[in-house]
Design a protein around this nucleic acid. Sequence first.
DNA 1: TACGGACAGCGAACGGTGTGCGCAATGGCG
DNA 2: CGCCATTGCGCACACCGTTCGCTGTCCGTA
Lengths: 270, 270
Amino acid sequence: MTAKSEDEADTRRSAAPRKGKDAGPGITNPWARPQRPRREQPVLSREQIVQEALALLDAEGVEALSMRKLGTRLNAGATSLYTHVANKDELLALVVDQVFGELPMPRAEGAEQPEVWRAAVEGCAEDMRACMLRHPWMVSVMGDVGMVYFGPSWMRVSEAMLALMETAGFEPREANDAMGAVIGYTIGSASVEAAWLSALKRSGRDEQEFMDEMLPAVIEATKDYPRLHRLYHTAVQQDVADGRDSGFLTGVRLVLDGVEAALKARQQQG
Amino acid sequence: MTAKSEDEADTRRSAAPRKGKDAGPGITNPWARPQRPRREQPVLSREQIVQEALALLDAEGVEALSMRKLGTRLNAGATSLYTHVANKDELLALVVDQVFGELPMPRAEGAEQPEVWRAAVEGCAEDMRACMLRHPWMVSVMGDVGMVYFGPSWMRVSEAMLALMETAGFEPREANDAMGAVIGYTIGSASVEAAWLSALKRSGRDEQEFMDEMLPAVIEATKDYPRLHRLYHTAVQQDVADGRDSGFLTGVRLVLDGVEAALKARQQQG
DNA sequence: TACGGACAGCGAACGGTGTGCGCAATGGCG
DNA sequence: CGCCATTGCGCACACCGTTCGCTGTCCGTA
């Protein structure tokens, strides 16, 4: 299937046939293959497993990830994975944190200036959203797994974001509140969008196609809800993906307006 | 198991024994039971199924919901459900919208006054959060299912919230943006909290116990992240659930500050 | 009253799933 | 050289969602 490093697999698997009932009658040429199936390298490592799970998730979505399939992709048996990973849940948690490792670290330099600070926070939120939409399965996995927020990658960006807030002038406690507001909004928006994107991916269609195909039904369904109706009706004209992007951005800005007001109030008062 | 309406079940199930191999040797007294196992009522309905699925989810969590178990609980076979529901996914979507049906409708009356409007929106956000924390599986299911946002219950509260925003003075488009900010924050925060609550429920412990048991490990894990470290360190003193409640509230207020500023700006300008 | 179609319910079966267990083999270390 | 902890894995178990074809019942019509 994967067709990559097929020979390596053969090296490991067909060599040294079991002496039991499954030795078979095969008169395999002893010179045609390495004499001993020595373990050239650890063959299986936690990092490799996580990496391949990530690739599989990105390629085929969350319901396609099974321990067996993952094992096969790594030229290994399904149960071999359990030497490196306690659970499917643990594996998923590791994968999630691996993905969060893609996030650029927010930099606190110059964040004493409000414009710099705002831009940094806004960028951080956009990075997170992009990350979760690049891997639309993230949302559903994060819901299942729990304890994701103690992974090293996530802690690193939390810490950096707190630093950003404190540099801007917040007390630790307030910095946490501010971060909570921004991250809460970001995760929530991304959840909603990811649900949409997942349905989209399952349909196999283009986003604009999907929308065009869906809109009549939606407009029909919202007949009794005039405001929603009007909203979806005017949504026909614009490009869908652009609409999502700009919608997210205006949301972040609303949130940041609130946060910045709190910051200004605290600076004036103290 | 459920022990409810056991007799009805028996009426339906043991009556009119199969004439095939499973008829058994039973010499059941023909006078000892109702002469005809007439179908008193439809026995199985979509509403009933959704209801019971909801009960099962609340009682045992999302991974405990299987079509077989659900069928058993309804004194029915697993496959009978498929006459009323296309899919497990469809069932889940129905359940999610059923839960959203618990939400009180936000009322737009008096929302021309900013304080009334703020209180209404804040209350709505709190209701949504409470709803999703009352059923902690909601988050993960919403992630899996998609298309949840076209259910009737959800559309009803969206419509009402838009009305609220427009009454306060927003244009339709801006009203949607404002709603998006509030709802995004609410869903995101609830996701994070629900993940915590799910882990908590799986552990079987009390929230304070769980926290106390977890904190040392967390504090150890955050050793390299001074700000997080300090945060969790000071978190020891206060009650955990209260902390979550008030944390959510201050977040909503930050968001609402931003939204209200936009509202004021728009009123001053136009 | 008799019949025939429509249809809810269900048992069996298919092709999967996560994971515990015990055994085979290996490589490092004494 | 020989031991042994560790890694990989085949097997098996219990369970899953869903399809198919059969049964028994209901209701409308002749």
